[in-house]
């Protein structure tokens, strides 16, 4: 459905943030894009959404295709119309708007107002807490509720591909659990394909079917989730486990430091 081939992204004409990555999201699938800070995950999402130009970024090479349509030169409005909706990082709700207005504005580009109303009810069913808070200013919601609201706003846009940028950021584990269950439910019930960008590899690999790991602007590892989760290096660097699954002792670290061998 979404196919990225060898894209390179440059900021300010000099900083090469993404160095030739390729990835694919199949119809109806959940794909995780993992990696630490500064790996280029969010930049990749911004490139797909067509909002790089506001940050002086540019796709200098490669192709982004969605259902066979080339997205490289399209603007964010056209991309949203094609059915790709991004749920941006850091819970970017409109804090001066009410919960309802936040949701309605998510359907701004849609003309089928009847369906929009149905989707509104559906969002309220996914996140019952939003129904309770519907008239309140979004700025007064808790962190978890705000994350639910941005996801709800994304669903209001009727996405075929929903791209979530770090939905677990700064949330309590219990809320993260709840949000990921809903993401899975959305994927299941609406057949929405999902591209999930995460630092929390553990939970992302639990719901994704396929994963890519990025580092320094490159994809360094990819494979089906189970396989990735079983990989020694992934365990070490992204899941924080040793081979027996126990906590690591300081002595081991000192004795032999595992290196990211693929970097050299």
């Amino acid at each position: 459905m979404l196919k990225i081939t060898n894209i390179e992204i440059v900021y300010n004409d000099v900083i090469l943030a993404v160095r030739g990555i390729s990835l694919e999201v199949p119809q109806g699938g959940i794909v995780a894009l993992l990696g630490s800070n500064g790996a280029g995950k969010s930049t990749t999402l911004k490139a797909i959404s067509g909002v790089l130009d506001s940050e002086e970024g540019e796709i200098v090479d490669g192709k982004i295709e969605f259902k066979g349509v080339l997205l490289n030169r399209k603007n964010s409005k056209e991309i949203v119309r094609l059915g790709i909706i991004q749920v941006p990082e850091g819970r970017r709700i409109f804090d001066e708007l009410t919960v309802d207005e936040n949701l309605w504005v998510g359907a701004y580009h849609r003309l089928d107002s009847k369906k929009v109303k149905e989707d509104y009810q559906r969002v309220m069913d996914y996140f019952p807490i939003l129904r309770e808070r519907h008239g309140q200013l979004a700025g007064y919601l808790s962190g978890g509720e705000q994350q639910m609201l941005v996801i709800g706003r994304g669903i209001m846009g009727k996405p075929e591909l929903l791209m979530l940028d770090e939905p677990s950021l700064g949330l309590a584990p219990l809320i993260v659990e709840e949000i990921f269950q809903i993401i899975q439910k959305v994927n299941h019930e609406e057949r929405t394909s999902i591209l999930l960008v995460e630092q929390n590899a553990n939970i992302a690999l639990q719901i994704a079917s396929y994963g890519y790991i990025m580092e320094n602007g490159k994809v360094v590892l990819d494979g089906p989730s189970q396989k990735l989760a079983a990989n020694e290096d992934v365990k070490e660097f992204y899941l924080g486990l040793t081979d027996v699954g126990s906590r690591k002792s300081y002595r081991d670290v000192k004795h032999y430091k595992r290196r990211k061998r693929w970097l050299s």
Binding site: I93, F94, D95, L97, G157
Partner: peptide, 15 residues
Amino acid sequence: RAVANDQRAAQIIGI
């Protein structure tokens, strides 16, 4: 109002 509130977020949802 959404644009006034957060331009980049508004852009990302297709406004």
